[in-house]
Design a protein around this nucleic acid. Structure first.
Length: 837
RNA sequence: GGGAGUAUGGCGGAACUGGUAGACGCGCCGGAUUCAAAAUCCGGUCACUUCGGUGGUGUGGGUUCAAUUCCCUCUACUCCUACCA
């Protein structure tokens, strides 16, 4: 009986079947090899978007495939549940952030269930739950006690719109990463984690991460920013004081013609106390963009050149020297640094070339407006003359160390991680300020420090500081009055260890070391490239820090990483430059109009975003076409690491495949033939199955998809021409449902059950096919001078001379080689023949 | 300025360690089915061609019997980063 495929009924049916049999619930089993698949957990914003659909579909392919390969798979899901949007929503919707968050989690979980993901929901976590965040309060206390967490007065990035401090990493082009507001500088007392302590290890261990994209490792390595050089003292004339500078180019020291200090350098500050013009200059610098103008203030001070007797060098306060990097002071060598040259030209300072390119004579070499920054041969530099850049660096460092006027020194760009946020909806920092001025951690038995319940949440509720009675408490030991820290953690704190928590999500202890040793590291982590630095670097740091605090022995959390591309969609704009939603566009005689009859033009293809109105809601797609169709589309065509363009044609063609599959199975379910076949088709199908596997292993799901199409086409052909036996056909359908399982699991189960197979398809073993290779004939190409001129079918066992004989008699080939002298004959077994004439 | 990457039909993209370029999907063209349409099915689809062929993987060169693949040059685009001394 023929029936149309009904995804609404079928998908629900199999989702229930999986859940009733608990097929995705994972248990530690030391006899089985584990495989931990993880997608970056979502922020519960309200609804899932296409980016989630793509991310979780990719992960689900891996999880299902590995399960069928026999691994003990852990594939958990949870919620990155703290964060600003909840507060904003709480204010506008007059709901508590907690209620809003849990409501969203409920909706989104339902959507994820509809996608048919092979998730173990028994391990679900929400980071806003006290049973989750109490553990990180404990970590923080451990870090505080071991000196890894500390407080300091710091000029911080203040976001005036979100009214919070941001980490350096959250400031992009001087603007807040969320609000886009221009960031102000503000001095506040802040909590920091000493990530800089791990700079070297974080950098070195990147080499161990063989299964990470190189791109991400390069980005992290740049961010950590190791540079090797020297610290050198420049003695102030008429004073015993020194100015210490950091340089990576000690080889150019003989070209030093000025010293530049940052505006925050101690000497700058000191001078500005007595000099109004210096003070004004420093003020002025706050509005000066050093990109455009390099400005300096001549302090009138001089330093002695450390290696040239009686040479005095002027000292400037400048707007282009960073205060946080190195020592906030540099020597300027204008000949070999473009910035220094620009500055020197502005103030008419000396330019002394001390390096020449190795292929240019010293007399032909001069510096005008372009500094020579490449390595070269040292000139004009006393005892360094004639050395290469690298040799000179070594020699200078040796000599300044001997003279005790400097040191070899390594510097990192990586700053300590500022974690204080002046927000309500985050994890409270478990610290007390006692009335005697002591800063003490909250007693561990008093954890968690819970967020207060707030009725009528409003703007003023959005920092803990403003909540009455919450902060006041007592020190248990002394009975002294104490006030709670009212800042909360940066939400990257929660996401830095959630993948640990999944291993024992319900345990009273933060970690069960047995579970961690078994499940971790994450074998395959999948998420967006936007987390290449922030989340991934913090997580790596957290793992090392918790290791050093004695929780476990792991050093790197993510063995394999995959960064997927974005989901993009066509944008449209009308003649008023407004973005227009695709559904609001009508076509009249080939011209596009919006609802108000304004002409519309196609814009760029961009990442789906609400502001550009090119969003497609996965919910609508799943309703209309089903989860399998949506999943299939996410996997088709584009390689996972590249952007995927959403198109209407793409989704309907996926839908077509799903229906075609069912119609095919339905039509031929009772296929019977008395003919026997030659196994050729089966051999081809087996090859395809193995290719599907290797493509999955290589994370090239678009190629697996193409192979599945080939499988279906081939089988379809064989059946309609009766060239496959009944038993082989039955075999093929069984294999078909199995290879469909990781991609479109619902219809896979439906086919599996329709062909009367027992159990669930997901519980079957993934096939590895042996391909029979008995004296097969092969087609090989025949080339003349490298150009293909024909194809010949030969038996593999034939030897070279026999094959050449055959080829030379071939009609097609004869016309090319007759009357010509064959200079060389090449035969690559099973592949190609080439005649050089 | 520094770093990473990409470039193949009308489109998304295939081509394993150099070995029949364009798999698979979309679109388009033709046909079948239909009163008609949608849906579906079948066939065709790199370009030029005197139908023998010829050219073709961003540009120009090199290595090789053979190059989308390896090396050099240039061009275009994308992403990251940015006064890090």
């Amino acid at each position: 009986m023929s029936s149309r495929y009904n995804h609404r009924i079928t998908e629900k049916k199999w989702q229930n079947a999986w859940s009733e049999k608990k097929v995705f619930s994972s248990k530690k089993n030391k006899k089985k090899e584990k495989y931990y698949v993880l997608e970056m957990f979502p922020y519960p914003s309200g609804r899932i978007h296409m980016g989630h659909v793509r991310n979780y579909t990719l992960g689900d392919v891996v999880a299902r495939y590995k399960k069928m390969k026999g691994y003990n798979v852990l594939h958990p899901m949870g919620w990155d549940a703290f964060g600003l949007p909840a507060e904003n929503a709480a204010i506008t919707e007059k709901k508590h952030p907690e209620d809003w968050t849990y409501q969203n989690i409920k909706t989104m979980k339902k959507q994820l269930l509809q996608m048919g993901l092979s998730l173990d929901w028994e391990r679900e976590i929400a980071t806003c739950h006290p049973n989750y965040y109490k553990h990180e309060q404990k970590f923080f206390i451990d870090m505080f006690n071991s000196g890894l967490a500390y407080k300091k007065e710091a000029e911080v990035n203040w976001d005036p719109v979100d009214k919070t401090v941001l980490a350096n990493e959250q400031v992009i082009d001087g603007k807040g990463w969320r609000s886009g507001a221009i960031i102000e500088k503000k001095k506040l007392s802040q909590w920091f984690l000493k990530i800089s302590k791990y700079s070297e290890e974080l950098l070195e261990d990147l080499d161990k991460l063989k299964d990470w994209p190189n791109k991400v490792k390069v980005m992290q390595s740049n961010w950590i920013g190791k540079s090797v050089g020297a610290e050198i003292d420049f003695k102030l004339s008429k004073s015993e004081k020194n100015i210490k500078i950091f340089t990576t180019r000690p080889d150019t020291i003989f070209g030093a013609t000025f010293i530049a200090l940052s505006t925050e350098h101690n000497i700058s500050k000191e001078i500005s106390k007595n000099s109004i013009s210096a003070k004004n200059f420093i003020e002025e610098c706050k509005d000066l963009n050093p990109d455009k103008t390099k400005k300096g203030f001549d302090t009138g001070l001089f330093v002695e050149h450390p290696l040239i007797k009686n040479k005095k060098i002027p000292v400037f306060i400048s707007n282009f020297v960073l205060k946080e990097y190195g020592l906030g002071a540099i020597f300027g060598c204008p000949a070999h640094d473009q910035r220094d040259l620009d500055f020197a030209n502005e103030y008419n300072l000396e330019v002394i070339p001390v390096l020449r390119p190795s292929n240019i004579d010293i007399n032909d070499f001069s510096i005008k407006n372009v500094a020579y920054t490449e390595p070269g041969i040292v000139i004009n530099s006393d005892f360094l003359n004639g050395l290469s850049t690298n040799e000179a660096k070594e020699k200078v460092i040796r000599i300044i160390q001997e003279k005790k006027i400097g040191l070899r020194k390594t510097n990192f760009k990586l700053r300590d991680w500022g974690i204080s946020r002046q927000r309500f909806w985050g994890c409270p920092i478990p610290i007390l300020y006692r009335e005697d001025g002591k800063v003490i951690p909250v007693d561990e038995e008093d954890l968690p420090v819970k967020l207060p319940k707030v009725e009528n949440f409003n703007e003023t509720s959005s920092t803990l500081k403003n909540i009455e009675n919450w902060g006041e408490t007592k020190c248990k030991k002394t009975g002294m009055k104490a006030f709670r820290e009212t800042d909360t953690f940066d939400t990257f704190f929660e996401s830095s260890w959630y993948y640990f928590r999944y291993c024992n999500a319900r345990s009273e202890m933060p970690f069960d070391e047995g579970d961690i040793n078994y499940w971790l590291p994450v074998d395959q982590y999948i998420g967006g490239i936007e987390h290449a630095i922030l989340h991934l670097l913090y997580s790596r740091f957290f793992t090392k820090a918790l290791r050093d605090l004695g929780y476990f022995k792991l050093g790197e959390p993510f063995k394999g990483l995959f960064t997927q591309g974005m989901v993009t969609h066509q944008t449209f704009k009308n003649n008023k430059n407004d973005w227009i939603e695709p559904k609001d566009i009508q076509e009249k005689n080939g011209v596009l109009f919006d609802r108000n009859n304004n002409p519309v033009v196609m814009g760029k293809i961009e990442k789906m975003s609400k502001s550009k109105k090119n969003v497609v809601d996965p919910n609508d797609i799943i309703e209309l076409y089903g989860a399998d169709t949506a999943r299939w589309f996410m996997l088709s065509d584009s390689p996972p690491e590249r952007d995927l363009q959403w198109t209407e044609n793409g989704i309907t063609s996926s839908y077509r495949l799903i229906n075609k599959l069912w119609e095919f199975v339905d039509k031929y379910r009772s296929y019977k033939t008395n003919d026997s076949d030659d196994n050729k088709t089966i051999n081809e199908l087996k090859k395809i199955i193995n290719e599907v596997s290797s493509n999955i292993e290589a994370f090239q799901f678009n190629k697996s998809v193409a192979k599945v199409y080939e499988f279906v086409n081939l089988l379809n052909n064989a059946v309609s021409k009766n060239t496959i036996s009944s038993s082989n056909f039955e075999w093929s359908l069984k294999k078909l449902s199995i290879i469909l399982q990781p991609f479109v699991p619902h219809i896979s189960e439906e086919i599996w059950s329709a062909i009367s197979q027992k159990g669930l398809c997901i519980e079957q073993a993934w096939p590895v096919e042996e391909i029979e290779n008995n004296n097969e004939n092969v087609n090989i190409a025949i080339q003349i001078n490298g150009k293909t001129r024909g194809v010949i079918e030969i038996n593999k066992s034939f030897d070279k001379t026999k094959i050449f004989e055959m080829v030379e008699k071939d009609n097609k080939i004869m016309k090319y080689i007759k009357d010509k002298k064959i200079i060389k004959k090449i035969y690559v077994p099973g592949k190609i023949i080439n005649f050089v004439i």
